Simulated scan of single mutants.
Amino acid sequence: MEDNVMSVSDVLHNNGEKIIEWQPLALTLVEYPKGDWIGKFFAFISLSPFGIGAGFVALILFRRDLHTISFFMGILLNEILNIILKHTICEARPMVRGHLYNEYGMPSSHAQFVWFFSIYVFYFVLIRLHHINNNSIISALWRMIIVGGCLTLAVLVSIGRVYLNYHTTSQVVIGAVVGFLFATLWFTLVHRVFTPLFPQLVSLKFCEMLMLRDTTLIPNVLWFEYTTSRQEARARGRKMAALKPTQ
């Protein structure tokens, strides 16, 4: 039976054509043991950085807020730092993953990404949003949910990378530490150095053309946008009603 089976490479060889070698895109490929529901869960969790990145692109396109852009720039720099560290340390991934990945595994890029993201969100909520409705139980609750959700995601991604044998424990721990430290450094730069420059930056002609904005002095941006759009809609509704001819 096996003698009658001809592979695709054999067919290409016999026809004198060039054999095409298929290379998987390691960035998005996530595997888990067949039938392992815990592994499947961690595989889905491992895709969260891509969802976060897509969310940032959408926010920047539609909101064009300098704080969001600065946050995203930090994420990009964090990824560049991870690449530099990997090619400096040159530590391979676990042997079980050697046949899929040519890149190095120290530190874990997933762990470094999610911990940078989570710690930056923690600082943002703790420092930037501390003045918003401090006496409101609901406000304190949603801040706890946001921070708790981000930190839980970071822990799950870190555990998943070890569980699925994509990284060793040390690679994940070092990635988390680097992400934590760089998030602290980057938030400090944004909060202390960049934010005071935002008012002058948004007044530039180039930034006005891109409709970039600074929401630093607005305590609750979501509530401000909600009330402003509702008032504008009501004002336009009354104006249109006044222009209608009376019968």
Results as ranks from 00 to 15, higher is better:
Thr152Lys: 07
Ile89Tyr: 10
Met240Arg: 12
Leu47Tyr: 13
Phe42Gly: 00
Leu47Ser: 11
Leu197Cys: 14
Ser170Cys: 09
Asn165Lys: 15
Pro33Phe: 12
Phe124Thr: 14
Ile45Cys: 11
Glu91Asp: 11
Gly149Ser: 15
Leu185Pro: 04
Trp142Arg: 12
Phe194His: 01
Met209Phe: 12
Ile89Pro: 02
Val121Asp: 00
Ile69Phe: 04
Gln231His: 09
Leu243Trp: 04
Leu185Gln: 05
Ile127Lys: 12
Thr152Asn: 12
Trp223Cys: 04
Phe116Glu: 00
Ile145Thr: 13
Glu91Thr: 05
Ala235Gly: 02
Arg64Lys: 15
Leu25Phe: 07
Gln23His: 13
Ala154Ile: 04
Thr169Ile: 14
Ser139Ile: 00
Ala241Arg: 10
Phe198Cys: 06
Phe182Thr: 00
Val96Leu: 11
Val114Ser: 01
Ile146Lys: 06
Ile132Pro: 01
Ser108Ile: 02
Ser70Pro: 03
Lys244Arg: 13
Thr195Gln: 12
Leu153Ile: 11
Leu222Ala: 13
Ala43Thr: 06
Ala154His: 03
Leu76Phe: 10
Thr168Val: 05
Ser118Gln: 04
Met144Ala: 15
Ile146Ser: 04
Thr152Gly: 10
Tyr32Met: 09
Gly55Gln: 10
Lys239Arg: 11
Gly35Asn: 11
Phe198Pro: 00
Ala58Asn: 06
Val125Arg: 02
Gln23Pro: 00
His130Ala: 15
Leu129Arg: 15
Trp142Ser: 11
Gln200Tyr: 13
Phe224Met: 08
Val147Ile: 15
Thr184Ala: 12
Ile69Gly: 02
Glu31Val: 00
Leu77Ser: 08
Val177Arg: 05
Ile80Leu: 10
Leu100His: 09
Leu185Gly: 13
